[in-house]
Nucleic acid binder design. Structure first.
Length: 345
DNA sequence: GAGCCGTGGAT
DNA sequence: TATCCAAGGCT
């Protein structure tokens, strides 16, 4: 690949980043653990969403040793609402590896750090460059968008293999004296200037070194095929409440969607099928009243839940069920939180 | 390699 | 309302 502006691009990007970067909580530290936490939280998640989670998380788990010792329910409760909950479990597993096998020091080579659970090619490069200054590539969606335009690359970024092209591009361009600012600069540029739609080219510090801008249609890049369609699922949800004000909760399976999180009794049904009475067959509890509470849908990345929610008062007491105080401490996915907060008090 | 895995904001 | 997506990784 012939690109005539390597030195100019590198210098313009780094100086722009060091002048214009946003003041974000994880930019006040070089602690590899804290950088690691921020990078995991930022996976597929917006900066504004992450900030309060990041701050709270490090108040509760200020060191790797404390995170390593946390109970899973406590950990997931801190992650509640952030999504992709396996990230939390994998982060804790990775941290435990560092505490036990690396004497509490995050490894500083791609070879070693990549062995840690939940640390893929991007997170490895991000932690290495930002915390340790190691000149390793950290290619995320921003980087592919920015460099597809700067270098006028038309490969389909929806094809996994395409990432190698961009990793090679970063290897060519990266500032070996300031890998941290270079990598963060690429991402910051993608977030603030070189946006997916309506890029602000007139404000861009590397406009003069951008081939796509030169050719006139940077907004046409990157090329990205592939669309996902979501599959609908239909559920009846039963909020069972006993005479002591306890609710029946169930913990989800330990793998798959929303693993190990807690929910009210949920029964899948066919589309258009009306079966709220099924709870009387599946629950030994004797239903006194059963009222329709609400209906709503919740959209996931690859499926949609259509929920019909019923609240049922049952006879007697069920000591194994959970009172409000206990429920507040259990990690629940957002659709269940919606129901919980909508319950008549 | 394709599908799975959350959520809420922007357009 | 519909679509796309935002600092990806695992299976």
């Amino acid at each position: 690949m012939q690109y005539p502006y390597i030195e100019q691009f590198r210098h313009a990007l780094v100086t722009w980043f060091e002048r214009e970067q946003r003041d974000l909580p994880w930019r006040h530290t070089k602690d590899p653990y804290k950088i690691w936490v921020s990078e995991v939280m930022l996976q597929q998640t917006r900066v504004d969403t992450v900030i309060p989670y990041y701050t709270r998380f490090l108040e509760i788990f200020p060191t790797m040793e404390q995170l390593a010792q946390a109970d899973e329910d406590v950990l997931l409760k801190q992650w509640e609402g952030l999504g992709y909950y396996s990230r939390a479990r994998n982060l804790q597993a990775g941290v435990r590896e560092v505490v036990e096998q690396y004497d509490g020091v995050v490894p500083n080579t791609r070879e070693e750090i990549s062995k840690l659970k939940g640390v893929g090619p991007y997170t490895a490069g991000a932690v290495l460059s930002i915390a340790y200054g190691v000149p390793e590539h950290a290619v995320d969606g921003n980087v592919m968008r920015v460099l597809s335009r700067v270098l006028n690359i038309h490969e389909d970024i929806a094809v996994p293999k395409t990432k190698k092209t961009f990793e090679a591009a970063v290897d060519m361009l990266i500032d070996h004296e300031n890998a941290s600012s270079f990598n963060q600069g690429l991402m910051e540029l993608g977030a603030l200037i070189c946006t997916p739609t309506s890029p602000k080219c007139l404000l861009c510090p590397v406009r003069d070194y951008c081939i796509a801008f030169e050719e006139g249609e940077p907004e046409k890049l990157p090329v990205k095929t592939k669309k996902v369609k979501t599959k609908p699922l239909y559920y009846d949800v039963f909020v069972l409440r006993d005479e002591a004000g306890r609710y029946k909760l169930e913990q989800r399976a330990s793998s798959g969607l929303l693993a190990n999180m807690w929910q009210f009794v949920m029964v899948e049904r066919g589309e258009g099928v009306f079966t709220p009475q099924i709870v009387e067959q599946t629950e030994a509890a004797q239903i006194v009243t059963q009222d329709h509470l609400m209906s709503f849908k919740h959209v996931f990345s690859h499926l949609v839940w259509h929920m019909d929610v019923y609240i049922a008062d049952v006879k007697g007491e069920h000591p194994a069920w959970y009172d409000a105080e206990q429920i507040e401490k259990l990690p629940m996915p957002v659709p269940m939180l919606k129901i919980w907060h909508a319950l008549p008090r």
